[in-house]
Write a protein that binds this DNA or RNA. Structure first.
Length: 803
RNA sequence: GUCGGAGUGGCGGAAUUGGUAGACGCGCCAGGUUGAGGGCCUGGUGGAGCAUGGCUCUGUGGGGGUUCGAGUCCCCCCUCCGACACCA
């Protein structure tokens, strides 16, 4: 018989909400715990990934509450973004109405899961009272020269006539229409995150409760390289350019130079020369080609400019090429070509017949490719015989003495491109004035409201541009006619500070009150998908550091502990609507109940790992809950004796479950609860006394409360308690009961298990040896041979080495 | 290519410090309950062999090594997944 989960789940969801069990205020008398699941995009329907995320989060909220913490667990909506806009374009749905309807639906579904949040703090980034503070944040950055506008190459879809974010470009093509993406120069807004590169990198060391792989990914993304930057003169001209290198020690091996096709010097180098036509054709082709095409070509391509560069170290003249393997966005967009010590330069030199000079003596014979290893410097004048470290030091000193170069640090990280030629986002609060230039919207005029438009389809510029009345405004500086910025902000701006807003969500005169933030920050546990390991987490760290610098954030790192969950797969692929392999949580709420589904998500495997879906597994956890139900509702006999073993088992279970939750591993916390339930059912048949039984049942219900809260609360009530289980203290265990008196010891002969024997847990090595040697089977295996060694590790194992 | 992560029964997985490999669940098999089915209960379930109420061998992607003892530690290789992807 199975219990009526629909009825009891609805009952308790209503009670928790009515009694405001999970609504919190700042309370200095209690330790605080800020527990946060990454706020979702309101897609309109929960999928299993959400269920998994909120099940983990809710388990922690409930567990920490029972442990006596003041737990803040808020929920909100990352409600700006492309899907709502695409729905508007494709189906004519109003983005605002559509988004808000989806929020209503998803809120209902989250409540059906029994996941509890402080809904008084709910926020949605598309609300003017939220995005007003995005705009405020933008202006704070602008005031400190950390927001700027400049021309930059962007991904451009020629069919959709729009700019695409990097993540919308899949294999070099537009994610929506499949057209090959072009690169195009457009004036864009940036945040100067590179100013924070060092701090973002260095502070990763503090985040020792983040997964290593996430820290590694961030480290690689920031990509710090130490090296030198120096000036190279162009022969027979007064032109020069700068190069960056991590291997200044190889400067004597420079046999050519390369400029990126977009390098500003290219034009003056080739104008009016014999090489002009060929070079211009190459530059044009590089501009047209997508990244994918550039790479797919396999071999490195380039073209000679006709000009020569002068190596400052020895005056030697080397040819200057243009090649697209040198990137405009990194370093100085120009390099010294040292084929002997760089594989890319080697490939290029080999193709174009350029001389190769080795400047490092390989440790072993080495041919056919560049040598990147250690070795003595050779063919390098005054650097000869030095090792790499010494040679680098020496040459940088020399460059600095000559006043042509310096030691420098280069990052792979680029500034954050935040403007989008899109409708459904926070308008950038700037005004373009013909006489004053770029002028910020005064703070007292925020928010700049998103205007209504007729047509959301991209036409090569932001849809906001079509709202003529809105665009036309007056310049705050001179009062003349001016035009508003029509780009909106990347939604990653919204999510880069929402966790601070949750500490003071209704503030209408500031983004948040520093006092509230001081109580709640940092987020003690942040839970979400690993797909946000780089961008969101990096941006959030950046903005938090910035807000700390201007005295508003109490912390320099927003998330103390990060947990990234694995994804759900079915048939070997990630569960997704487009692949058609989704299992709808709503159907499972109806058929098995939220508790069974939650328990299955906890049980199916390590929370960090990807997990393969199996609906039969929900059947299994559902059966388990039926058994728990029967323990309480069908036990009638209480005519036996107190059962100390059962109590001991309950205490061991409490210890194990607590330890597993603390280390964030849930799949191993459930088996002991299952076996405890089986023991209770056996005991119920056998008979015990009422006191023992009630005591053990109480522990079981409490341990189950964070995992399967509805059934746990119902059984708590049915076992005669008036209190709210969610606010009851977590079970404690007695150390004496947890330690077992006897254990099974393994007896090995020559490392092979030959016998098992039950012994006292505190047996001495001598006693263990005596007992083991007394065993008939062990004697049979020793078979009269000499015992060379006895390794006794009581009470687990004893091993006789014979032979 | 570089950097991460992972390979254990038919399946999901367990084994936290080197010490009983396969906990727990699913699936499957047998028996019980039932008019039948479902449900529930009990037992079994890595592989091979045999003198089959038990015993022996073998077994954690492959190959070597360290150790009394290796899923766990070291070296080499293979496969899969993820991130970055010409970063000078």
């Amino acid at each position: 018989m199975s219990y009526d989960h629909q009825k009891i789940e609805a009952k308790w969801q209503e009670r928790w909400a009515n009694q405001r069990v999970f609504n919190v205020t700042e309370d200095p008398s209690k330790p605080k715990f800020y527990n946060l699941c990454m706020y979702p995009y309101p897609s309109g329907a929960l999928h299993q990934g959400h269920i998994r995320n909120y099940t983990f989060g809710d388990l922690l909220t409930r567990y920490k509450t029972m442990r006596g913490f003041n737990v803040l667990s808020p929920m909100g909506w990352d409600s700006f973004g492309l899907p709502a806009e695409n729905a508007a374009i494709d189906s004519g749905l109003d983005p605002r109405e559509n988004t808000e309807a989806q929020i209503v639906t998803m809120t209902r579904q989250i409540k059906q899961l029994g996941a509890m949040y402080d809904w008084d703090r709910e926020l949605a980034s598309h609300h003017p009272d939220y995005y007003r503070w995005d705009q405020w944040l933008f202006l704070q950055l602008w005031d400190r020269d950390l927001a700027y506008k400049k021309e930059a190459p962007v991904n451009w879809c020629p069919k959709d006539q729009t700019v695409l974010a990097n993540e919308q470009v899949v294999d070099g093509a537009c994610e929506r229409c499949g057209t090959i993406v072009e690169r195009k120069n457009l004036a864009q807004w940036f945040f100067r995150i590179t100013d924070y590169a060092d701090r973002l990198l260095d502070d990763l060391d503090q985040l020792d409760e983040w997964p290593d792989r996430v820290r590694t990914m961030q480290r690689n993304w920031i990509g710090r390289s130490e090296g030198a930057r120096f000036t190279i003169k162009v022969a027979v001209s007064n032109l020069s350019f700068e190069v960056f290198t991590t291997r200044p020690d190889t400067i004597f091996g420079m046999t050519f130079c390369v400029l990126a096709p977009e390098h500003p010097l290219v034009d003056s180098l080739i104008s009016g020369t014999d090489h002009e036509d060929e070079a211009r054709a190459y530059v044009a082709q590089a501009a047209r080609a997508s990244e994918i095409e550039r790479m797919a070509e396999g071999e490195k391509s380039g073209v000679f400019t006709g000009a020569y560069a002068v190596n400052p170290i020895n005056g030697r003249q080397v040819p200057i090429y243009i090649a697209d393997y040198v990137l405009m966005g990194y370093g100085t967009a120009a390099i010294m070509g040292v084929p002997g010590q760089d594989q890319r330069d080697w490939d290029f030199a080999t193709r174009y017949g350029i001389e190769i000079i080795r400047t490092v003596q390989p440790l072993a014979s080495w041919e056919g490719e560049a040598y990147l290893g250690e070795g003595e410097t050779i063919n390098s004048g005054f650097l000869d015989d030095l090792d790499q470290t010494g040679a680098k030091q020496r040459i940088i000193d020399w460059l600095e003495e000559q006043g042509i170069g310096e030691r420098t640090v280069q990052y792979r990280l680029r500034d954050w491109l935040i403007s989008r030629q899109r409708y459904w986002g926070s308008p950038i609060p700037m005004i373009g004035c013909p006489s004053c230039g770029l002028v910020p919207v005064p703070l007292d005029q925020l928010p700049v409201l998103l205007p209504d438009v007729e047509d959301y389809a991209p036409r090569g510029q932001s849809p906001l541009a079509s709202a003529e009345e809105w665009v036309h405004t007056t310049c705050p500086a001179c009062g003349g006619e001016a035009r508003r910025e029509t780009d909106t902000m990347d939604t990653f701006v919204d999510s880069s500070w929402y966790f601070l807003r949750f500490t003071d969500p209704h503030n209408d005169h500031a983004a948040f009150e520093p006092g509230n933030a001081r109580y709640w920050m940092a987020v003690d546990q942040y839970i979400g998908g690993v797909e946000h390991a780089i961008l969101h987490l990096l941006y959030a760290r950046f903005i938090t550091k910035f807000l700390s610098d201007i005295g508003l954030s109490p912390v320099t790192e927003p998330f103390s502990r990060l947990f990234t969950q694995g994804m759900i797969t079915l048939g070997g692929a990630k569960m997704s609507k487009s692949k058609g392999n989704v299992v709808d949580p709503l159907e499972l709420f109806a058929s098995h109940g939220a508790d069974s589904l939650r328990l299955y998500h906890l049980f199916m495997g390590p929370p960090t790992d990807d997990a393969a879906w199996d609906t039969n597994g929900v059947e299994g956890t559902s059966r388990f809950l039926d058994r728990v139900w029967r323990v309480v509702t069908e036990t009638e006999r209480f005519d036996g004796d107190p059962d100390r073993d059962l109590v001991a088992q309950a205490h061991r279970t409490a210890k194990k479950v607590t330890e597993d939750i603390e280390r964030f591993v849930f799949n191993t916390a459930i088996p002991p609860l299952m076996t405890l339930t089986t023991s209770l059912l056996e005991t119920a048949r056998k008979g015990t006394d009422r006191e023992t039984f009630d005591q053990v049942v109480e522990i079981l219900i409490k341990l189950l409360a964070p995992m399967a809260p509805h059934i746990a609360h119902e059984l708590w009530e049915r076992t005669g308690h008036d209190s709210m289980l969610a606010l009851e203290p977590w079970p404690v265990w007695e150390a004496d009961l947890v330690t077992q008196a006897t254990v099974v010891m393994v007896v090995q002969v020559n490392g092979k298990v030959r016998e098992r024997i039950e012994v006292a847990a505190d047996i001495s090595p001598e006693e263990a040896e005596r007992v083991a040697l007394g065993l008939e089977k062990v004697q049979g295996w020793i078979d009269g041979a000499e015992i060379h060694r006895v390794i006794a590790r009581p009470p687990n194992v004893i091993n006789f080495v014979v032979g």
